[in-house]
Design a protein around this nucleic acid. Structure first.
Lengths: 189, 189
DNA sequence: TAGGTTGATAGCAGTCACTGACATCATCGT
DNA sequence: ACGATGATGTCAGTGACTGCTATCAACCTA
């Protein structure tokens, strides 16, 4: 057996989600999270740059998947179709998680302005990466940024509907619907 | 003469912009801003909820203008046209400010992740308010949210281009262009 | 005009997020 | 064996932000 329990990072993530749910984000200190994970506050901040980031541990991987989806779209596809391929990849990945945990996380984030702020920042990061992937496909500006941002809006709206329980279908279906809604409203005026 | 110099809030905003420009956001303390304005740190936090908010003093007014523009759009207009009216109102208001100050503020925000995060949060607030205004016009979901979010994307992209000096035309012109770009990319697939 | 109220500010003590520097010690390669 | 590595602990410090209390000009009221 090692000197320490394994997967400190994962234990911190679990402890944080539990405490944020039980007591609320503001009423939870980093030291409490660390203690629940059998670690110290200092170690918490070695794994996560701040108190919010502990809820967004999978965002780098999700971004990779989205970008890969965009890059792998058929070359004949237009910008928004390519973004749609990225969204399909995102839906596939998010669908792998236990839905109750996704929902718990969503509730915690929705309840706190600072956490909502961080989630928006993550989406903006995805959008920037997607725009870059579109540039690689020869899409110019401002089309690339607009398609990427619109795509992240679709992602956000779809996950919101799916995660809040308003729509029982697969996330992929909800996302296709939202994408169709965007095309309708933007193209039809 | 009153007991104190007038317009504490405005003096704090000026001092903060100056210090953030000179030394950077991270290297500036709230106490330094307050001292520069002839006040105390405690008073700074009475006027602004946190160190970032001091750069966003006009956001509530801007949101009102945008919403009023949407609400005042011709009833025959579709959702995205109505949002376009809101953007025109925003362009008119932002055009009133001294362009050098707008640019200075933009540079400061662009240089710091926390400030970019706050700006995204403000845009999300605008989007939520615009979606609500669209509901009042009888637009349903998800069309209202999508149109509102797409509109704020157009605002962001346009202000980015305009404020970074890449486009010398009036903000209103740049914004119309960006809106046309969105229609093209979304409608054309 | 005296006296009470209000409102913006100062002063102070406290909590907690976050950081830098250094110590510890199992594990691993040589 | 033994030194290097890496994850963790310990400790001290800065600064954002909050709650409470005191001050005092301006204003209101009788």
């Amino acid at each position: 057996m090692g000197r320490w329990q394994p997967d400190s990072r994962g234990r911190l993530q679990e402890a944080a989600l539990a405490l944020y749910s039980e007591r609320g984000f503001d009423q939870t200190t980093a030291a409490q999270i660390a203690a629940r994970a059998g670690l110290t506050e200092r170690t918490f901040f070695r794994h996560f740059s701040d108190k919010r980031e502990v809820l967004f541990g999978g965002s780098a991987l999700l971004q990779e998947r989205i970008v890969a989806g965009v890059a792998g779209a058929p070359l004949a596809d237009g910008p928004l179709d390519a973004v749609g391929c990225g969204l399909a990849a995102a839906a596939a990945m998010l669908g792998e998680f236990r839905r109750d945990l996704s929902r718990q996380r969503h509730v915690v984030i929705a309840a706190n302005p600072e956490l909502r702020e961080r989630e928006l920042a993550k989406l903006a990061d995805y959008a920037a990466a997607v725009a870059e992937a579109l540039h690689q496909r020869g899409v110019g500006e401002p089309q690339a940024s607009l398609a990427a941002e619109a795509g992240m809006t679709v992602l956000r709206v779809a996950v919101e509907r799916w995660s809040s329980g308003g729509d029982d279908r697969d996330l992929a279906d909800v996302m296709r619907d939202s994408m169709a809604g965007l095309r309708a409203v933007a193209g039809g005026g």
